[in-house]
């Protein structure tokens, strides 16, 4: 599906209130935004809101190991007696950081390449779009595995490996929008007035991509978190004892089915955060009336 996007006519700032009103009438978007904001706040405030912040490190408390969820330990305790709820909240930090870094690299790179390919066409388009085809042929997870093999399995390498492939999706999206916009009057007008290429790309065309990018970014944040969790599940993410949701699911799964909470609850946390970004993305899509991003 060559992400076909049709954006509405650009909205003016005076529509902000109207947008907010429409957004607040959309239950999925509000739930999604709520989850995302809650997750971000929890991650930032983790040391102050968690009951046992000292359990982040290599604490051992064998008397309290494998305790089921209770009022004292909301999500139970793990095999060395650490509070799982505390570690889940701290684990959110890694997941969100991953999404931030990967998208922080992928969006500027992907957007710029997409604009160039869509606007200039010719060999620029051929080179860039063929590069995206190649990058698409490598599963991000497998790429991260390969990079982990060559360098060392840690969070930074995994993030770079994912980012090195993720830009393709943004390139394809922006490319298809730019191609539609290239022939429109406002672009031609800017060209006739002698605007620089830079101005046309970033001041004329880019603002028209913003709503599609917002939708894509929100949906992507969820998917990047899922890929990152899979990596750390395989042992290629941040190394223990730093809490990481994927790692917790992996280590907890050794104690299935008796101590199910040790893997199921961190897994639920990943699911809920990804769900939040997804619902938010869907809501934004309805709001901006962007069709079929991704």
């Amino acid at each position: 599906m060559a992400a076909q996007t049709v954006t509405n006519e650009p909205r003016r700032l005076s529509n902000a209130y109207q947008n907010w009103y429409r957004f607040s009438r959309n239950p999925t978007a509000v739930i999604g935004a709520g989850i995302v904001i809650l997750a971000i706040l929890a991650a930032i405030l983790a040391p102050w809101i968690t009951p046992y912040p000292e359990h982040v490190g290599a604490v051992v408390n064998f008397r309290a190991r494998h305790l089921p969820p209770s009022a004292e330990y909301w999500f139970g305790t793990d095999n060395v007696g650490r509070d799982i709820f505390t570690r889940v909240i701290f684990g959110l930090r890694i997941s969100l950081l991953l999404a931030l870094v990967v998208l922080g690299i992928a969006i500027p790179v992907g957007t710029t390449l997409g604009l160039l390919a869509g606007y200039f066409g010719g060999w620029v388009e051929i080179v860039i779009m063929r590069l995206t085809d190649i990058a698409l042929a490598i599963p991000p997870l497998v790429m991260a595995l390969a990079v982990a093999a060559v360098l060392s399995p840690d969070l930074i390498n995994s993030m770079l490996a994912i980012a090195a492939l993720w830009w393709t999706w943004h390139t394809r999206l922006i490319y298809s929008i730019t191609r539609q916009l290239r022939a429109q009057e406002f672009v031609e007008a800017a060209e006739t007035l002698g605007a620089s290429k830079f101005h046309i790309l970033f001041r004329e065309i880019l603002p028209n991509c913003v709503s599609a990018l917002a939708v894509k970014t929100s949906l992507d944040a969820g998917f990047v978190i899922l890929v990152g969790a899979s990596l750390s599940f395989l042992g290629l993410g941040i190394q223990p004892p730093t809490p990481d949701l994927g790692t917790m699911v992996a280590s907890g799964s050794a104690f299935l089915p008796d101590y199910w909470w040790e893997s199921v609850l961190p897994g639920m946390a990943i699911l809920v955060v990804a769900l939040g970004f997804n619902l938010l993305g869907d809501g934004l899509r309805d709001l901006f009336d962007v069709q079929e991003v991704r």
């Binding site: 899922l226 969790a229 899979s230 994927g246 699911v249 699911l271 990804a274 769900l275 997804n278």
Partner: peptide, 10 residues
Amino acid sequence: IFSAVTPSFF
């Protein structure tokens, strides 16, 4: 939606 946001390993 749920199938898209559930990690495969989970």
